[in-house]
């Protein structure tokens, strides 16, 4: 005779196919995920904006974990200089749009995943409609303007998101729950002049560094979707690969924040 809780567990298991129970077996074992968490992941929609150094590991781990719908937004095509860090793409996909290259890789990795490819340059005209259908957004872009644009749209639309950024051996990230936690503009009120700010195109970046931060962004999405653990809210996490050091800086919502004050 099964207890009530055991019966519930069996019923939940039934929703997953035999192949899915095998594919996701390592994460089904963990109480923080389990069959219910897996079903939530399979029913979830995550948008990755930027299919580059951060978006590559993030999308791969979301796909491997069985996030059911992954949106990818990027306007660029795969370039040879991308392959040192953008591990979604390959020598075989040089020259084709990054979102197509990424979609093929993700479909090959996991047929459970529905990939929505958006070959667009995000701007003020399209950002609100782009993020609207998704449960969680990963901000993996390489420009300060895009980071502020995505923050403001997510705050407006009440969309939780995770910001990531890298340069050289350094990375940073934070998760934002609009209306509840400090937003990107609470941490960085001024959008830097791109001509004066450090630029990875001029200063470089080691591929494994966005690998680390992109993986952590995927973790934040999975934690949000399953309710596991504590999110990286009201904190900026910084990473220095040279000293192999993570540091966390406390953040507070600003009363005068241009994006989230009064929301």
């Amino acid at each position: 005779m099964l207890s009530r809780s055991s019966r519930r567990s069996v019923v939940a298991d039934m929703a997953l196919s035999e192949a899915q129970r095998t594919r996701y077996s390592r994460q089904l074992l963990m109480p923080e995920i389990g069959p219910k968490g897996q079903e939530k992941l399979l029913a979830s929609k995550v948008l990755v904006i930027g299919a580059g150094g951060l978006g590559s590991p993030a999308a791969l781990y979301l796909g491997a974990a069985g996030v059911g719908t992954i949106g990818l937004a990027d306007s660029d095509a795969v370039d040879l200089s991308n392959l040192q860090r953008q591990i979604l793409h390959s020598t075989e996909t040089l020259g084709i749009p990054k979102v197509e290259s990424a979609a093929g890789r993700l479909r090959g990795l996991n047929p459970d995943v529905r990939v929505e490819a958006h070959q667009v340059f995000v701007d003020g005209e399209n950002i609100d409609a782009l993020i609207a259908p998704y449960d969680f957004i990963l901000e993996c872009t390489d420009s300060f303007d895009a980071k502020a644009l995505i923050n403001d749209a997510c705050v407006r639309g009440g969309k939780p998101f995770c910001h990531g950024a890298v340069i050289r051996f350094y990375g940073q990230m934070m998760t934002v729950l609009p209306g509840k936690s400090a937003c990107y503009r609470c941490a960085f009120p001024q959008v830097p002049d791109p001509e004066k700010a450090p630029d990875a195109r001029k200063l470089g970046v080691l591929g494994a560094v966005p690998g680390v931060i992109g993986c952590l962004q995927a973790l934040e999405a999975i934690k949000y979707l399953t309710g596991a653990g504590e999110l990286l809210t009201d904190r900026l996490l910084t990473f220095d690969a040279l000293d192999m050091e993570f540091q966390s800086v406390a953040l507070k919502r600003r009363n005068d924040c241009a994006a989230c004050a009064g929301r």
């Binding site: 930027g50 580059g52 150094g53 951060l54 978006g55 993996c140 872009t141 390489d142 420009s143 300060f144 980071k147 990531g164 950024a165 890298v166 340069i167 350094y170 990375g171 940073q172 960085f188 830097p192 791109p194 700010a197 450090p198 630029d199 990875a200 195109r201 970046v205 966005p210 900026l236 910084t238 800086v249 406390a250 507070k252």
Partner: peptide
């Protein structure tokens, strides 16, 4: 940051303070 609190260049500093300086990071 001055002693962990968000601050501005015009804010005063004193003996024993810890100043932390972070640049903008925007690569992806």
């Amino acid at each position: 940051l001055i002693n962990g609190f968000h601050s501005k260049p015009e804010d005063s500093v004193k003996d024993g303070d810890v100043i932390s300086l972070f640049p903008p990071v925007g690569g992806g």
